[in-house]
């Protein structure tokens, strides 16, 4: 039984790790702010969920499990709010998103002057 739990934890947390690395990669690689927000969202949602569920499977204390689940719930409430606040702030400040390009003219929107009016 313990072995099964261990294997599940391994799978969950390794998937979480892969997602985290992809997130970091996406933050560096994607062409403009709005697409990077999507990449950041991966770590906020699924990676957090997988890693903390993996930890919860390993804890034998009920209260620790409860705290882990609480962290997940709070992160699921606050992280989209923070993302919205960021996206809305940059939208209000006039930062234009880069729309439907095929990756060749990526550098356009990464221009710092875009933020100004």
């Amino acid at each position: 039984m313990d072995l099964v739990l261990d294997i599940i934890t391994w799978i969950l947390m390794l998937t979480g790790c892969v997602l985290l690395i992809i997130t970091g990669f996406g933050l560096l690689r994607l062409p403009d702010l709005y697409t990077r927000i999507h990449a950041g969202g991966m770590a906020d949602t699924l990676a957090t969920f997988l890693i903390f569920i993996g930890l919860a499977l390993q804890s034998d204390d009920f209260l620790v499990t409860a705290k882990l689940l609480m962290v997940i719930v709070f992160v699921f409430f606050t992280s989209p709010t923070a993302s919205y606040a960021l996206a809305h702030a940059s939208f209000v400040a006039g930062l234009k998103p880069m729309l439907d390009t095929t990756g060749s003219d990526q550098r356009d929107s990464a221009d710092p002057d875009e933020g100004k009016d």
Binding site: F74, T81, A93, G94
Partner: peptide
Amino acid sequence: LTGLGSQHDLVPHIVAKLL
């Protein structure tokens, strides 16, 4: 400041109320 965006910021408002 720029006149863009909605006047009501519902999302932070409701989430703050909850938390």
